[in-house]
Amino acid sequence: MYWKYVVRRAIYGIMMYIVMIFVFSTLFNSVADSTMRSQIDEQVAQESLGWKNLTPDQRDAKLASRRADKIRQYHLDDPLPSRIFFRSIRTLTFDFGNSTTIKASNGDRLVIGIIGEALPRTIVLFTTEVALVTIVGVAMGLYAGRKPNGLLDRTVSMLTMITNGLPAWWLAMLAIMAFAYNIPIFPSGGLHINPAPTGFAGILDYLWHLSLPLLTLFFLGVWGTAYLVRNIVLSNLQEDFVMAARARGVGESKVLFGHTLRTSMPAIMTLAILGLFSSIAGNIIVEGIFNWPGIGNLYFEAVQQNDVPILMSTLAIETLLTMVGFVILDIVYGFLDPRIKVGGTA
């Protein structure tokens, strides 16, 4: 029964998720423990340089007190197994708690609030980019596949090699050099000018700041997607059922969209859904270059600050969404291609 497969697949996904959260918690807490203790010692020692006119005893007392403060701050005074277990349980129940150092813009240290600020920025940039790349890439791939060695096909092949052969950050820098400095039609980065305009002007300003990173990412991504779709389509166009359709006198558009595209959809949907879900992880380097404070930047900062609650929570959310993506893919495969009966009986 198909629904049994869906339930089984969902349960399997949940179990995998639980295991992964415990693994993350064990890794982060155990690694962070020794690192944080060393950093606390270093930090307090550095702070002590400003202490004047203290006797050695007073100095020792103050050093010990400051170390104890920091150890409490990072909960390093709790036993390690307890930290691993409770952090996992809290994460699994979506009780992300407070970050240790990173703050939301309103000053709160609630992890959900901090992620809630960064995530929409990432979605606006990267998820929009994935959506645009998918739509345009599929269209271009279809047409490129229909006319192999045509102008579009050759262009797609060539630009795929170029854009995939060069590092994203380098192309991003080139885009900034070209359109922020040489032909200064876009800002070099950030969300807004300073001070940020409000109302409709604020929206326009935001879109203006979004344009260059979005166009850059789109340019980087669309050719590869088109090339992939082109190859899938090209392969399907050689299939017997397509030949048969053409032999029956079915129109070329119907062959392309009705027969070829539908058959190619599982692969294209895999690409699109995984791309969409993984897009919420952002991109540390591109966000850094375009000064776009999304999830990628947040994750990078959390690694630098050893902010375990933030690290755990961002990874938990991203893992969860990826898992959900896989489950959804498994479910929709059956609908997209009648030949696929995953989990069904023959």
């Binding site: 900034i176 200064p184 800002p187 070099s188 980065g189 300073n194 001070p195 270059i289 000064n291």
Partner: peptide, 20 residues
Amino acid sequence: ILIDAKTSEDIAIKDVAAGK
């Protein structure tokens, strides 16, 4: 004084050179 934050050292220096 208008203060902002830059996440890339390279871009920030070029912004100064470009008068931004």
